[in-house]
């Protein structure tokens, strides 16, 4: 059962080169490499200050070759190295956060869709309550009361994003539950968790994957917004949002300070969104309008 459905999902991705989402891969690959290798491939130590060399524009603009591709900041730190180092926080928070949100949300969706009853009522009211607050405000409230730091930010992202999975998965489970083979399995007396694992989960996992990929970009932006507002990961960890916030004072003189971290952010989000669109079109076109 499992292999069959997964095989189908794979087949629906298309064949040959079309199986690869070219643009998203081109956009995301460097960010993933930066995130994993980080400081190992950065030309300078991203934390090393050099006041003599402070606020230098990108070197290729002033004829100094490749010494500081993205210029230096107010402490003389290499912006390019810091952008590379910043990928880690951004990717960790968004991928792990959306992943945890997925685990929680999928469980909630399965339980409320399959069993119904009071569990469904409670979970769905919880979703309603949470959705009556703008996500960024919820995130701010949580960060402000729970404190900051990498795991706190991940927790916040997970809390903000689990509701979408729960809603979508619940709907999916409700429809899969009506299919003949599930009804049959229940009539034959299969235990609930067997049915859920063998028959329902494989059929709704595609949608979960699509929701995850569509939320990835939003999670990257949420992390960046939090660190922009000073509620993200804390130094010495480097985050793009934080770099942009620090650049506020130098808008008139050093455009490269906010520009390059922002560019990295845009490329990551664009890649993630396009990946999400691509997956959705292939796996679950009916999610298009949601």
């Amino acid at each position: 059962m499992n292999t069959v459905t997964n095989g189908l999902a794979w087949a629906r991705l298309g064949s040959g080169w079309r199986r690869l989402p070219i643009f998203p891969v081109i956009l995301l690959a460097p960010m993933v490499i930066f995130g994993i290798l980080g400081t190992h491939i950065a030309p300078y130590d991203p934390g090393a200050t050099n006041p003599v060399n402070a606020l230098k524009p990108p070197s290729w603009l002033i004829g100094e070759g490749f010494s500081h591709l993205f210029g230096t900041d107010y402490l003389g730190r290499d912006v390019f190295s810091r952008v590379i180092a910043g990928a880690r926080a951004s990717l960790t928070v968004s991928v792990v956060g959306v992943g945890i949100a997925g685990c929680v949300g999928i469980c909630a969706g399965l339980v409320s869709g399959y069993f119904g009853g009071w569990a469904e009522t409670i979970l769905m009211r919880l979703v309603d309550i949470q959705m009556s607050m703008p996500p960024i405000l919820l995130a701010l409230l949580l960060s402000a009361s729970l404190g900051t730091g990498l795991w706190m930010v991940i927790f916040v992202v997970a809390v903000v994003f689990w509701t979408n999975y729960a809603r979508v998965l619940r709907g999916e489970v409700l429809s899969v539950r009506q299919r003949d083979y599930v009804v049959m399995a229940r009539v034959l007396g299969c235990r609930s968790h067997t049915i859920l694992r063998r028959h329902i989960l494989p059929n709704v996992i595609d949608s979960a994957l699509v929701v995850a990929s569509l939320q990835l970009g939003a999670a990257v932006i949420l992390e960046a917004s939090l660190s922009f507002l000073g509620l993200g990961v804390q130094p010495p960890a480097i985050a793009w949002g934080k770099m942009i916030a620090e650049a506020k004072l130098y808008l008139a003189t050093a455009w490269w300070l906010p520009f390059f971290p922002g560019l990295a952010l845009v490329i990551t989000v664009l890649g993630a969104n396009m990946l999400g669109d691509w997956l959705r079109d292939r796996l679950d076109p009916k999610l298009r309008n949601s």
Binding site: G217, I221, A224, S225, F228, G241, I244, A245, A247, K248, L251, P258, F259, G262, L265, V266, V269, L270, N273, M274, D277
Partner: peptide, 15 residues
Amino acid sequence: MTLGLALPVFWIGLM
């Protein structure tokens, strides 16, 4: 529009 969707608000503001 795809690009516009990927632009973080605070960055656009500063730019």
